[in-house]
Amino acid sequence: MTLSELKQDAEAELLGSFSNNNPHINKVEAMGLRSGAKIVIRKIHGRNIVVQVKDLGVDLVIDKELAGMLEVS
């Protein structure tokens, strides 16, 4: 399952990304969305998702296309 398929308030753990060497995904990971991160979907708004990385306390907005490249449990 990918991050883009999660519903509002869903909690999950990130497993990794489907992309290899996409600079945007590299950035997503450097922002804290990387394998092992426990996340919660705080809001879905149009094409965007507000994800909270629980262990970091960081809130990120990511569009569904990018989110579709991230695998979650």
């Binding site: 809130d59 990511i62 569009d63 296309e65 990018l66």
Partner: peptide, 17 residues
């Protein structure tokens, strides 16, 4: 501009709150 000189699709959106 989008319809003429600067055609393109909306870029990805990534932002920290």
């Amino acid at each position: 501009l989008r319809k003429s000189f600067l055609k393109g699709k909306a870029a990805n959106f990534l932002l920290e709150l």
